[in-house]
Structures are given as structure tokens and as C-alpha cells.
Amino acid sequence: MEVAVKIRKLVKRFGNTVAVDSLDLDINEGEIFGLLGPNGSGKTTTLLIISTVYKPTSGEVYVYGHDVIREGDVVRKYVGIAFQEPKALWVDKPYELLLWHARVVGYSTSEAREVVKNVMEVLGLWEHRNKYFYQLSGGTRKKVEIAKVLIQKPKIAIFDEPTAQVDVISKHALWDAIRELRTQGSTVIIATNDMFEAERMCERIAIIYKGKLKALGTVEELKDSIPEGDIVELMLDGDENTYLRAEDLLKQYGKTVRSNDSLKIFLNKGEERAIEILDLLKSRGFKIRKIMVKEPSLDDVFFYMTGAKLKEG
């Protein structure tokens, strides 16, 4: 399998802030690859470097063997990106914008009209084609941004938080369209902080936190990477101090991760241990509001690796 994007020791600094910190990554041709991390983890910066919009501070990035710095003009022929924030002026109209985009990416005028109409119909944008951008909802603007890549059909299609602000029904339409793009031969890279989206869409996922790669693998591999296979999650009556005391008490069972309103213990034989834990806590006077035994989700994997929640960062 050919490597479509190769990233080596990539560093990007903005002043004193390190956005991407010595990142190494290979993205294979034809896969749907996810960059999972909270806001500010370096996902967008990485994507903008791949698409030659940002320049790396140090390190190397190759797209089909072409250096993003020295051969940017060649790289841009392979890459198309749907930005996190839709890029348009308030007086732009979707149809005109997409028609211009289609012509820039190589369609003749008649082809451009046809492909733009098709993509706009698929995404439910056709009725909005002649509205001004300021008249569109956030979700519709986002769809216009996604439409650019669907029209372009690039070898490497990049989507930065593709379904943020999009309603549930449209999300599925967008996911189907992105999958179809892959079927037609594109390698797809999706940056997201939505665990469900990552799990549903991506064949391999890189978990990124504070600019560093924390884990890499398929969804199953990432879940299996937690040494203890089960999670006991507790919710207690009490304040932070209650959780601190409970954490001290339960450390003997496995790794514990505490948030504001729950305590997770990563352990083996979850069902059996849950009863022990329940008895122990009751005997020490804790009031248990809820106890759950579950298999780890991607959110738990992220939590385990970083100690932070995806949405909180």
C-alpha cells in the first residue's frame, strides 16, 4: 500500500506556542484516516501544513513523495481541503463560488455547471444557490465548504470537522458523500473531536493532544490498547473531596481517572470487581448515585491516554 502522506518530526510554532510537536505519521493511499483530538490539539495546523497553507517550522511533510515546501505547486494538485470555518465573503453566493472553484480545479465551464449542480443537489444546497452567504445557516455554509472538495475530487481529500454545526440528518448525507469520494479513489483525512464521527467514519485514527501523537491504530486496536479491558464508572453524591477520597481508596483496582462528576477505574473482570467496589464504598460511607460497567469507547481511550476529555480539551 502506497503512503499518500508522510509526516516526519513535524513542528509548527506560533510565537511561543507549539501547535504541533514532533509529529510522525503515515497516511496510506485509499484509507479514511482520522485525526482525533480536542480543540487546540494541532489537528487543523497539521492539515493546513499538508495542504501547503501553513509552512512547517521544522520537520518534513511529503504528499505522494513531494515536499510541501519545495514542491508546493505539485502538492496542491493532489490536495483539496474543506476548512473548519467556511471560506466566503458575506456577499458571496454559493452557486457562483462553487462554479468558480470548479473551474479553478480544472473543469470546463459546461462540466463545472453540471458537477456543481449535482453536488449541490446531493447536499441539499440547490435551493440556496442564489442566496447571499450571510443569509445561510451555519450548517448550510458548512455544506458549501464541503461541496468544494466533493466537486474537486482530489487524490487527498481533507475535511476539518466536516459535520460541526450540521444537523443529524445532513450529517449522514455528508458521511455518505465522503465515503463515496473514497470509493471513487480519494484518500480521505478527517479531523474531528467527535468520537462518534471518528468511530463511524475512520479506518485508522491518530489521537493527538497538545500537538503530540498519543496513539495510532484502528478503532479496535485503540480500544484494545487499554491494558485493562473494562471500565467501572462511578457517580457519587458529594463534592470534589468525596471523589478524591474514593479515588485513593480504589487505586488498588487499576488506573483511575477522575472528572468533575465521575470516577473511572480501568480494570479486568469488571462485573466481578464492580460488586467488590460497591461493597467497599458502602462500607466506607460513600453514597453511590450510579455505577456502570462498560467496554471502553474512543472517548475512554482518549481519556486514558491523556487524562483529558475530548470536548473539554
Partner: peptide, 19 residues
């Protein structure tokens, strides 16, 4: 400047056009 503010320059920089 308005185009830069609205991210249009970033969009243009990502297009398959030489600098």
C-alpha cells in the same frame, strides 16, 4: 484585508495554482 480576515486568502493558497 477583508479577504484575509474572512479566510479567503487561506482558501486561495490551498488551490491548485502556483504562488
Amino acid at each position: 484585508a477583508e479577504e484575509f480576515e474572512e479566510g479567503i486568502v487561506e482558501y486561495h493558497l490551498s488551490l491548485p495554482i502556483s504562488r
